[in-house]
Design a protein around this nucleic acid. Structure first.
Lengths: 139, 139
DNA sequence: AACAATAGTCAGGTACTCTGACTGTGTCCA
DNA sequence: TGGACACAGTCAGAGTACCTGACTATTGTT
């Protein structure tokens, strides 16, 4: 059996690649993996650049430039944060929401496969345990 | 609870970063994350560039350049593959083995923490289930 | 009002990764 | 057995991702 790192990485990478492939196949050709990683962390109310940077483990500068790219291609929009004039809120735009739907559908598909592989009960337990391991750093 | 992708990614990323930090702290300052990802896939008997490329999801060219960097810094060595004159076997060199030890120690530490978090029995079950999910693509 | 902290951007540089083109070696079969 | 094709790996060139350092504007704190 592989080491834990690989055990986590292999299914993660498979999911990530399949989701991006599905999104691309649906006509969203201008979304890169790095952009998608930032994109998926945008909260429903909108997120600040700084928070996106922290949760994706990149610098503010990198997050900022990825968000700019996402804005140019219409996946997100920026609005000034009403609570803080220094900050900008990044929100999912219309085109982004359409891409989210495609991604969600593919994820459901993959989860169904995974449930089939190890059984629904064990799959839910797996997610619960992973959640417990994730809780250290509040991403 | 996060989506499955993030549930896999968050602990994975934590482990990866902590291990690299430990290795760096042990004096191996010239190892990058991308290099480490290739490095950890080298089999005991040695691995071919092409196989390393496939298992890390990068092109042969990328794998080749990462291996060259690892060779320059003394982590790996290349030997001609006795079975195929076209191929080179990449093997862990002395310095690489020392880094592996540091990494393994840190991984044990992290696994102990994780066992403490969800219990040893559930942790082993988690790894078994992840292994089952990884088995699709024989990495 | 002065000072430190925070949100974000600009600039410059390195690392990573890709596509395309190429050399040399192995394999297969007509 | 000789030629076509497949495969291992490298070279060259280009784009993306990501970083450090320096800066502006705003906020909070004393």
């Amino acid at each position: 059996m592989f080491n834990v790192g690989l055990l986590l990485f292999i299914p993660y990478r498979e999911l990530e690649e399949r989701v991006l492939a599905a999104v691309t196949a649906a006509g969203f050709h201008d979304l890169t993996l790095a952009q998608a990683r930032v994109f998926q962390r945008i909260a429903a109310e909108g997120s600040r650049i700084t928070d996106l940077a922290a949760s994706t483990h990149v610098t503010k500068q990198t997050a900022s430039s990825l968000v700019r790219a996402l804005e140019t291609t219409g996946f997100v929009e920026r609005v000034p944060d009403p609570a803080d004039a220094r900050a900008t809120l990044v929100r999912v735009a219309e085109r982004g929401a359409a891409a989210v739907e495609v991604a969600a559908r593919e994820i459901r598909q993959i989860e169904d496969e995974w449930r089939g592989r190890i059984g629904a009960r064990r799959y839910e337990r797996l997610k619960r345990d992973l959640d417990a391991l994730s809780r250290v750093s509040p991403d």
